[in-house]
């Protein structure tokens, strides 16, 4: 089942790359020079999170992002957000606790789509991120359910604060639907760097990462983006001699 999910996550990216790449090849555009391309700063909210929050009752998450166009189709990216989770399992599994966290990620995006004009800000991205999450988990109540010998008495795992670090590889696209407004998605492969910190009762959900009891997870974002643009100053103006 997980394999199918992964395919569903990654396949659209390849479809998009293939389709967009074909378009770029047939029109044969000429890449504009750096000087002709202006500045762009974008602000994004992950519109998928409120939808997922509605579908999955044990977690709440909110994510935001901003990126700035550096040069040569390279973008600096900062992302952040917060969330919480509630585990209240009874029955064959008996476990109860709450957790909350905030996170910040930094990294780069590189657009692999050739521009068709200086005003063309549609993009297909690949990128990388480093993320850090600050997580608080309350004391957890548990017991082991045993129908033969009888359930064990309730136990308590003390509250704990975690700091999680992870690395991400990303890919996705975005398109300008109307001037300055984009929609797009980003698929992420995330790899936990300090796995040892999460050995005992890792939180079920860490906003920005996902399941903390997994060392590698796939995730996605569906972004609604607003872009601010301004012209790039000409650093080397050409002096014209007036006769």
């Amino acid at each position: 089942m997980r394999i199918f999910k992964c395919i569903f996550y990654v396949l659209p990216l390849f479809i998009s790359c293939f389709a967009l790449g074909q378009t770029a090849d047939t029109t044969k555009p000429v890449a504009p020079t750096r000087e002709k391309t202006g500045h762009q700063l974008t602000f994004s909210i992950d519109a998928s999170q409120p939808i997922i929050n509605a579908f999955i009752s044990y977690r709440q998450g909110y994510e935001f992002a901003a990126d700035y166009y550096l040069h040569k189709e390279l973008y600096a990216v900062v992302e952040g957000g917060f969330g919480n989770a509630t585990v209240n399992y009874t029955g064959p599994v008996n476990l109860q606790y709450n957790s909350n966290n905030s996170f910040i990620r930094g990294g780069i995006n590189r657009c692999i789509l050739t521009r068709q004009s200086v005003d063309d800000w549609d993009a297909v991205f690949i990128g990388a991120r480093l993320g850090v999450g600050f997580i608080n988990r309350t004391a957890a109540q548990y017991n082991v359910v045993d129908s033969i010998w009888g359930n064990t008495p309730k136990g308590i795992t003390p509250a704990q604060n975690f700091t999680g670090y992870w690395f991400e590889l990303t890919g996705g696209m975005r398109m300008e639907l109307v001037k300055h407004f984009f929609v797009g998605y980003l698929v992420r492969g995330k790899f936990l760097l300090n796995t040892s910190a999460f050995q005992d009762l890792a939180p079920i959900y860490v906003a920005g990462y996902g399941r903390a009891d997994k060392n590698a997870v796939f995730d996605f974002n569906f972004y609604l983006t607003y872009a601010i643009r301004w012209k790039r100053h000409n650093l080397n103006p050409v002096k014209v001699k007036v006769p």
Binding site: K5, F8, P12, F55, D122, M175, L177, G184, Y185, F220
Partner: peptide
């Protein structure tokens, strides 16, 4: 021109949303 890929985006959203519906 790129707007013709909107259906792809919508498809992705539907697939991902449907794969995530769980309570536990």
């Amino acid at each position: 021109m790129i707007k013709k890929y909107i259906p792809i985006l919508l498809f992705i959203v539907c697939v991902v949303a449907s794969s995530c519906t769980q309570q536990k």
